[in-house]
């Protein structure tokens, strides 16, 4: 077998590229036509359909899987999915997340089971939108939305609190704290057996 390292093809486009990129060395009159040719490209582009949009008046949807602002999800009855386990904070390579857990009580229940996230902050000055936190979350409490409008005028405003991150209450959802659906346990919630809202 021939082991010598010969390129499969000599024409890798390099020659062509070199030609095209060659500087216009000649300052003679005949180069004027070439310059005109260049302006022509600019001119004709003015009549082409543009790729950009007039943001912020016009907003284009992002790609479906775009990594945008985070959201903390709820069960169908409004209870929070987050259990305050800090696995997201642990997974985060940028140390952007801060979670403090707390015990649910019978009087004040925010999530099914024993534990909920009392403090939840994401620092968007740090977040690199890698999505590792989403992968780490054991309850699918944390997901990413497509929201990309994350600019503000101060550092403090870019640290999002739990209120800013919680998913909005949809029809039938009740603002926690409230008890679990009657006769249901946290296991039913984890299995996805809680359908419909209005507290069961």
């Amino acid at each position: 077998m021939d082991n010598s390292l010969t390129p499969r093809s000599n024409d890798l486009g390099l020659t062509a590229a070199a030609k095209a990129n060659a500087p216009i060395e000649s300052q003679e009159a005949k180069s004027f036509a070439k310059q005109l040719q260049g302006f022509w490209v600019t001119f004709i582009t003015m009549f082409k359909k543009v790729n950009t949009v007039e943001y912020p008046e016009v907003k284009e949807p992002t790609a479906e899987r775009f990594h945008g602002r985070h959201q903390l999800n709820r069960y169908d009855d409004g209870l929070e999915k987050c259990i305050g386990c800090e696995l997201c904070a642990w997974a985060c390579p940028a140390d952007a997340i801060l979670v403090e857990g707390e015990s649910n009580t019978e009087e004040e229940r925010f999530s099914p089971g024993e534990r909920y996230g009392k403090v939840y902050q994401i620092n968007y000055l740090r977040c690199v939108f890698c999505g590792l936190c989403i992968e780490a979350c054991p309850t699918r409490a944390l997901t990413m939305t497509n929201g990309y409008e994350l600019a503000d005028e101060s550092r403090a405003k870019l640290i999002f609190e739990k209120e800013d991150l919680m998913a909005p209450l949809k029809a039938g959802m009740l603002q926690p704290p409230h008890p679990m659906a009657p006769g249901k346990t946290h296991i039913d919630y984890y299995r996805g057996d809680i359908k419909g809202g209005s507290n069961g």
Binding site: G84, E86, W90, E100, E114, R115
Partner: peptide, 9 residues
């Protein structure tokens, strides 16, 4: 200490 922290905190 229940639910207060993780070792990395």
């Amino acid at each position: 200490y229940r639910f207060r922290a993780r070792p990395f905190d």
